[in-house]
Every structure is written in C-alpha cells, then in structure tokens.
Write a protein that binds this DNA or RNA. Structure first.
Length: 228
DNA sequence: CGTTGATCATGC
DNA sequence: GCATGATCAACG
C-alpha cells in the first residue's frame, strides 16, 4: 500500500474532493483503517456507521452532528453505499430526520431533504456480509445531482409524506409510502419518543422518523452514472 | 429473500 | 432527545 495519509483540512474545491475520493477507489477498508490507526470491527452489529465515518475522515469531511451537508462550502453531501456482488445497493440510504411538528413555512425548496440531496458524492463499498469489513473494497466515486425528473419525484414524495405528517397521519405512514423516498423509524431504540401531530390535531408522542432513499432509486443513480 | 421496523455508536 | 454515520434482523 502506498503512503497515503488522511487529510487535515477539508477540500477547497469539488475537484480536490473528487481526487481524494478517486484515490480511495480500489483500496480496502482495512487499508484505510490501518493507515489511520483505527480499529477494524469484525462486523457492523455494534458499529453500523463505521464505514461512513472512516470515509469522512479520508475525505476531510467536517465531523459533527449538524443538520447540514458534509461539505457545506462545496454544497456536497457524502454517502457511502454498500453494494452486492452484482453492484446493487444492499441497504437504503438515510437522508435526514423528519420534522414532525412546527412545519408551517417548511416547503420543498427550503427542506432539509432537498438541501442534502442537491449534490451527493456517492462512494460505493462492497457490502456483502460474508466479506469481512477489513476486506471490503471501495469503488469509484459518483458525483450526482438529481435531474429534473428525479427532483420532481423527490418533491412529490416529500410533499406527500409531509402532508400526512402535518395532517396528523404520521402513525398511518409506513415504509411503503413514497416511490423514491420513504419514512421509517430512526432512533437508538424503541423507547425513544418525540412529539408529533395526532389524528385530532393534538400533540402525541411517537417514535422519531427519518427520510430514506429506496434501494431501487440509488441503484438507478449508479447505473445512470456508469452508463454516462 | 426482500422489506419494514428496530437498533447501535457517538457528541452535545 | 436530536442528529450524525448507517446496518441489523424479524417477519411476511
């Protein structure tokens, strides 16, 4: 393995970001972890976000739990994407928390979903569970922006879901609603609750929800990128 | 076997 | 509890 090192600063241009990302392609997560002196888990049962955090380190993303893009100055969100042997996504992609109350004035244009998805750097990684994390190979990065059709469908899904949330139907939303986006529980465990709007407009307690991208959608994104 | 709902680690 | 990074695993 060559003498590559983790960057100490964020990339100042998208081209610099892409060069860093392309430099990771073909390397294993074990290569990257060892070079950064990071312990490698045998599986992800207790460290589900390990890959994403490792790649963030290697690309110089600003760590933190702020609800904004990974590279705010570049307007780029970073997402790792676990792929099967046939190069299809093995998991859905988390986008952001879903606001369940105080949504007056929130629209698609100023939504967190749109902000996050305006420009995404996808970094595919082998994801089959039988491949130990250390041996999983990083793929070629894909810089994506939604085309007009994708943007329209995302907006449609977002509006449908947010309408249901605002109309007190959050408990009637399951993961089948939405064609690109879906809404699913997002919490440390089942005892975590937050406020939402109930059927009669009253405040209720419910499990926090997050927006996710369906696998079929992220698969389309990858295929389009590699078909040119 | 694919999807939905549940869950894990971390920082504040 | 919120928000980041996601994958796990029970179930239909």
């Amino acid at each position: 393995m060559q003498s590559i090192k983790t960057p100490k600063t964020a990339p100042s241009t998208i081209e610099e970001l892409m060069q860093r990302a392309r430099g990771l392609a073909g390397l294993s997560l074990g290569d990257l972890a060892r070079a950064a002196n990071i312990q490698i888990p045998a599986n992800f049962k207790t460290q589900k976000g390990w890959t994403g955090q490792l790649i963030e380190l290697w690309l110089g993303a600003s760590a933190g739990s702020k609800p904004e893009q990974d590279f705010p100055e570049l307007g780029v969100e970073l997402k790792t994407l676990p792929l099967s042997y046939s190069n299809k996504p093995l998991e859905t992609t988390y986008v952001c928390y879903a606001p369940l109350t105080n949504n007056t004035g929130v629209n698609w244009e100023n939504s967190n979903v749109r902000n996050k998805l305006q420009r995404v750097l996808w970094l595919p990684v082998q994801g089959e569970r039988e491949i130990p994390p250390a041996e999983r190979i990083v793929g070629s990065p894909v810089l994506w922006q939604p085309n007009s059709h994708q943007n329209a469908q995302l907006q449609h899904d977002w509006e449908e879901l947010m309408d249901m949330i605002s109309l007190g139907q959050v408990e009637r939303i399951d993961a089948t609603v939405g064609s690109y986006l879906q809404l699913r529980p997002k919490a440390a465990n089942g005892s975590v609750v937050t406020e939402a709007i109930g059927e009669d407009g009253q405040i209720i307690k419910t499990r926090p929800r997050g927006f996710y991208l369906r696998k079929n959608f992220t698969q389309d994104i990858l295929e389009s990128a590699f078909l040119g």
